[in-house]
Every structure is written in structure tokens, then in C-alpha cells.
Design a binder for these strands. Structure first.
Lengths: 205, 205
DNA sequence: TAATATACTAGAATAATATTCTAGTCAAGG
DNA sequence: CCTTGACTAGAATATTATTCTAGTATATTA
């Protein structure tokens, strides 16, 4: 199948193998618990090869994290972009979060279970930029609606807490087996509740 | 001050030194980043002494975690116990979370930043029991009010998500320097919003 | 075609760090 | 005293991340 020695065929395929193996291991047994030996075995790469592609275990994890968070954030922004209506936007946002979580279990476990963990150090900057961009995008939507009076005038950190907090918490419960509500239903209930929390005067259901 | 050799004076004082040092290190630089050597230096204990008191680094972290979470949960339950009124209860709960966080920064950083992390493995069971008890207690309050119609009939996992999610998310932002609202104000705003999300028909402000 | 450069790979060697082991020391009770 | 048991110290060991050395294959150039 694969050559015993020498350059691996295909563009970056060895690199991808390593990233995939890493995601597998990290989401399955956690960052600290997976040894480079695990990743080596799962990916079929050698120690040297792994360290050729990635500076360290930390940096490898950061790369995996960034790929995931980018995909996630992009989806949210797209979902939001298609919505003029405030209520629809909130629904779209929450819906995207919960469905993305369900369809990308491996990523989610890794991204949300261990947010701000260990390996972040090395990617701090890049992640900060991403989050900042993401925040700006999200804020644009909410500011527009605060201006229009469709959403109550609350500080941005409070709005973020009210919107993403429940999503994150549900995600956590989902993965620890403590959630009893199906995702479809959770989308409806959480959206409805968050809308009540945020809706401007005269807009509440 | 301390004897060069032999038993440390005072009841369990050496043990406490180790726990305190560990909390310090963990909350400051994270679990994986702190080496046993760090804990040894900070606590003044020897390697052997640490391993006499704790089976492993993991188990030490678990002990620290459990002490913290116990204190936190106890406070919430007490806060809730004093409240007949639904709205008051929600306010008390959120208020306790955010104030506890502010008054116990070191614990919070450790508890909330790395929830469900690594070392949990060894304490899984004990933590599961604590959380289950805690959940039951919290649920009692909400079920009573759902029954009375003062709070909307939502599944328990959704309620937990709506109440604790925003608290957790605000906490995360607070520690990563992304919160712009003062804790006092956050208590008011989040409580108000969560109340809107949960209030039974005819109870909304 | 052959020489060379580039990108990659392998696996052994090293370094860092968690854990175990051996030999104690002290305080209390008989 | 002497013995026991809780505790401590620090060296020895084991585990695991990282570095190093020596390659191999493919593309490029002459």
C-alpha cells in the first residue's frame, strides 16, 4: 500500500494522515492522554515524519483546533448572513451550533470540551485573531438589531453569554450523556428561550 | 521553621501545603504544564511526601477539583434554599455563581476553564455522584415552580443549559479578559434575561 | 541521462518528567 | 527503651516528548 521508505505520494497526504490521527486520538482520549506513539501508530507515520510536519505535540493540537474552529465559525457566520430578521438570525445561529456539533462529533468533543486548554499557548495569537474577527461579525448582526430596537440594548459580552452559553452547556451535557432532549427539539427550545431573553420591547412572543 | 527531616508538625499541614501549591500551579499555568517538580518546590514537600499523600498527579488534581466544586455547589444550594419565589431563586443562583467566581478566582480558573478535563478519569465516579446530587437539588426548585406555573415547562437539560450556560460563558470571558461588564451589572443583566427566558406565561416582566 | 536539490521519512539517541523504591526520621504508646 | 506507624527525603527507574543522523524518493537542471 504505502512505500516502506521515502516520500509519501499525493499532496500532503502524510500530513493529513497525521492530523486525522491526532484528531481521532485527542477527541477519543484527550490531549494529554494521547502520546506521540499513539499518533504515530494511528497515522502510520514515523516519529521523524511527525516532527518534520509539526514542531511539537502542542503545535499539532493547535493546528487541529484551528481547522475545526475555522469550519465552525465560518458556518455560523454564513448562517447569520442569510438572515435579516432578528429572531430568524438567533434561530439560525443556535441551530447551526447544535447541528454542527451533532454532525461533527469528533471535532466538537475536541473543540468544546477543552476550550482554552493547554496547547492554546502556541496558537494564542492566531486564535485571538480568529475570535476577534468572529466576534466582530457576530456583533454586527446584534448591533444592527439593537439599533432597530428589535433586540434589547445589552452589552456585547452579556449577549454573547446569553446566546453561546446555552449552546455550549447543552453541548457539554450532550457529550457527557446528561442531555435528555433530542437536538432538533433542543434547537427549538433554546432558540425560543434565547429569543425571549433578548427580544426588544414589544417584540416578545 | 520546618524540620529538615521527619514528620511535619500540625494536623495534615503538609498535605494542605501540597494541595494549596497544586491549586496555585494548576490555576496559574494549567494542569499539564505544572510538573511535580513545580508542586514540590512551591509546597516545600519532597517527591516522596507528595506521593505518600497522593497516588498521582492526576489524583492530586482530582482532590483539588473536588474540594472546589463542593464548596461552589454547596453555596448555590444554600442560596437557592432561601428562596421561595422563582425569580428570586434565579437571581440568587446567578448572583452566587458570578460572585463566587470573583471571590475565588484561583478556584474558578481551575474549575471552569478545564471542566471535564484530563484528571477527571480518576474521580469520575465521585464527581458523578456530586453532580447528580447537585442536579437533583437544583431540579427540585425548578420542578416546584414548573408545577406552579411560575416557570415554563421545559426539559431539565434545557433549563440547566439556559441557567448555567450564560454563567459559564461569562466566566470564561471574564478570565480571558473579554468581558467588558462589571460583575455586579452582569448579575443584574443575566438574571433579568434568564428570567425572561424561563418565566411562565403571565409572569414575564 | 546524470547530478543535484528539495521534501520528506525512518528510527535511534537524548531529555524531560512522572512514578517507584529504599532508607530513613519522628512522635506516641506500651 | 523499644516498637510501631505515619510520614519524609532523595536516588533510581520508567515513560514519553523531542532531537539527531542518515538516509530515500521525486523534481529540476544541465
Amino acid at each position: 500500500m504505502r512505500q516502506k521508505k521515502g516520500r509519501h505520494t499525493g499532496t500532503d497526504s502524510r500530513r493529513r494522515d497525521i492530523v486525522n490521527a491526532a484528531l481521532n486520538c485527542f477527541s477519543e482520549i484527550g490531549f494529554s492522554e494521547t502520546s506521540m506513539e499513539d499518533i504515530r501508530r494511528h497515522s502510520g507515520a514515523s516519529t521523524g515524519s511527525i516532527y518534520h510536519h509539526f514542531k511539537s505535540k502542542e503545535q499539532l493540537a493547535a493546528e487541529v483546533y484551528i481547522e475545526g474552529i475555522h469550519n465552525y465559525q465560518e458556518g455560523i457566520i454564513d448562517a447569520l448572513a442569510g438572515c435579516e430578521d432578528a429572531r430568524e438570525g438567533i434561530f439560525a445561529l443556535i441551530s447551526h451550533h447544535l447541528r454542527w456539533m451533532e454532525e461533527n462529533k469528533e471535532w466538537s468533543r475536541f473543540l468544546f470540551q477543552k476550550r482554552h486548554s493547554v496547547f492554546m499557548a502556541s496558537a494564542e495569537e492566531k486564535i485571538a485573531v480568529m475570535n476577534s474577527e468572529f466576534g466582530k461579525n457576530i456583533s454586527k448582526f446584534f448591533l444592527r438589531h439593537i439599533h432597530a430596537g428589535t433586540i434589547r440594548a445589552l452589552p456585547s459580552d452579556i449577549i454573547i453569554s446569553l446566546v453561546f452559553g446555552p449552546c455550549m452547556e447543552f453541548t457539554r451535557q450532550y457529550f457527557s450523556g446528561h442531555s435528555c432532549t433530542a437536538v432538533d427539539e433542543a434547537v427549538r427550545q433554546v432558540s425560543e428561550a434565547v429569543w425571549r431573553a433578548l427580544a426588544g420591547n414589544g417584540e416578545a412572543v
